[in-house]
Design a protein around this nucleic acid. Structure first.
Lengths: 196, 196, 196, 196
DNA sequence: TGTTAACCGAGACGGTACGTCTGGTCTTAGA
DNA sequence: TCTAAGACCAGACGTACCGTCTCGGTTAACA
């Protein structure tokens, strides 16, 4: 009885969808993620609350989809043959996503919110993180095959050491790494993973 | 017209203070940080809401103080002379804090909340993080002086590489590192910082 | 930044409205006007506080409307041709309203509250008092035209002398007039206003 | 245990008592009775809340005592031998008390409050009303003995008819009677009570 | 081309937590 | 022992959001 029948995606209004996603990012940028309420989002997007809740489970889900759609940060590696340069490009892309005037606040907010909402956390992991880690692993596997890394280089550890400083700094309110700091990180990690 | 004349610390009721802090941790453990409300905390602690707001600015501030007081995770390094072992002890202590049945949920919650509330974030940084980083730097400086690390080893990078994986995994809902994974991290970092 | 966009009366839930008004009178009767809180009213009426505040400005406004709707005391005069009898009927009706088990406490309470809240006082005057005074004046004007009263009988004074003892006794916690006392009042006033 | 032993009146600080009473009237005049809180009263009078509650049961009791002490309105009749003039003097005194810049707000407030607080209501009746009604009855009895009133004139009715319009007008937010209106009331009542 | 199902905006609803305020009690230290 | 100062518990206040719901109006697929 209470169960709302699954809505028909065919008939979904794309205008309402886009307005909701766009407005969500705008409002995060202006007010900060926390201060964005579904009520206000609905009014400003010219959309009804029921419509939002018909298609998304929460504010976080809206913002996550908006971020994903906005194509934040490069997904695929631009491969130049220079491993350090390629890592630098990817890490810089991630940092830029967090500092982007429009996307940054939404991204930080949704990540923090994901720590409270397990469903949202899972979605973030799957939609934002996993594809980029897969790309990262691809690139690293090639480097390992090329002999740029030790043949038994542990890619999970590599992913952690390279990416984690960004998240730690987010979480502890330290300033995010700049280019030269990223280079230091990369050099340290490559040294740790170097052959013999 | 914020009346808020600063309250007189001399006359503070220690009983109310302790009850509030204890109950805050208990409720975080039982319900999760998010689900703890100041109303419910006040009732269960047998304390009035006004008293809570007289001494703390928010739920997060209460929980932070409770965690700090509970002496979560070792502050000082136990120095054995074996650097890898000492780092392992400290990092294990941190991971244990996050997985502790009583403190873990409070700690995770307050860290996530700190990402929304800048004041709280600053307090976390100062009360929880900074003292431990100082201890860490002490230990690392000794190791550098002993020649266990390169004479130009960058301790900021070292701190990031060693601690950050824990925070990244928290943030992305990955499982926290276990002992053997921590050992891997430590070995990689020590290799990156090794002399010559 | 009073958001308060005027609510849409068309879509008002009559069920919630009735439950609120009914419960307000019940609670006044049981607990006394002062002890009724909006919180408790909302819970007992099965209505949210927001709904109450959406449609009424205060507890007093709810109770006033409940009283008005309950049709306390006869509004129109029942005209029998016998002036003294008609006045007796009306005054008795007023006294009965104040002693009514269900309405009395609400009515006394809202009148007293109106002395503190000017807006409420004005509403009481307009919704409860003015229509009855108009009816009273109609009846008295007819009596004056009939020669039952002096041609220059002052109806304002008449209204005061006849009704005021009830209010004075309310205010000073004297017992309210009974039938025979009302008759005395009426006889005195009619004598004072009698034609030459 | 909870029972506070009756305080020793001998040792009562008269300075605190006077400051409390004076400040109570001042604050009623400035802010209105409702807006005066015991907290604010204590602070402004330089007196502690505990001291206030030791000697008075409520804000209303303080204000009532302040009014009584301020000797509002003439208690005794000034007897000139002219009954209408004497009544006019007394009624004018009462109206003046209600419109007095300093005492009026306190008096109106405490009267309204007395309708909620039965104990306060009783005290008002005994301290403020009863003595004046006794004086009134004295004067009226003399007039009856003098033959100015009918020998069977009902003094209770007389008191009601003469005084009640003031209270009704207070309660219904009508303007208080002015001199000429008081004269009309007096003339009507004297006519109703006139011999034969 | 008319019917109809499901969308849509609007916004009222029951809940619930917020942070503030007031009332009345209790504790502490000083006179 | 009384006082000033003020912390304390209790709980009401009015506001803000939440997520659900009901209402007409509109739109698009099917008849």
């Amino acid at each position: 009885m209470t169960k709302t029948r699954a809505p028909n995606v065919q008939r979904r209004s794309d205008k309402s969808r886009q307005a909701t996603l766009d407005t969500a990012l705008d409002m995060c940028a202006e007010l900060g993620y926390r201060a964005v309420t579904v009520d206000a989002l609905a009014i400003r997007a010219g959309v009804s609350k029921a419509t939002i809740y018909r298609w998304w489970s929460s504010k976080g889900a809206v913002v996550l989809e908006a971020i994903d759609e906005a194509g934040i940060a490069p997904r695929e590696f631009v491969e130049t043959g220079d491993l350090a340069a390629d890592l630098r490009t990817q890490l810089t892309g991630i940092v830029n996503a967090f500092t982007d005037r429009r996307l940054g606040p939404a991204l930080r907010g949704v990540l923090a919110d994901g720590q409270f909402d397990p469903g949202l956390g899972r979605d973030i992991q799957q939609r934002l993180i996993a594809p980029r880690i897969a790309e990262f692993n691809n690139r690293m596997r090639k480097a390992r095959d090329n002999g740029e890394l030790a043949p038994d280089a542990d890619l999970e550890v590599a992913a952690d050491l390279l990416h984690a400083p960004i998240y730690r700094r987010l979480m502890l309110h330290y300033p995010l790494p700049d280019q030269s700091y990223l280079d230091k990180i990369i050099q340290h990690v490559l040294r740790a993973l170097a052959p013999i």
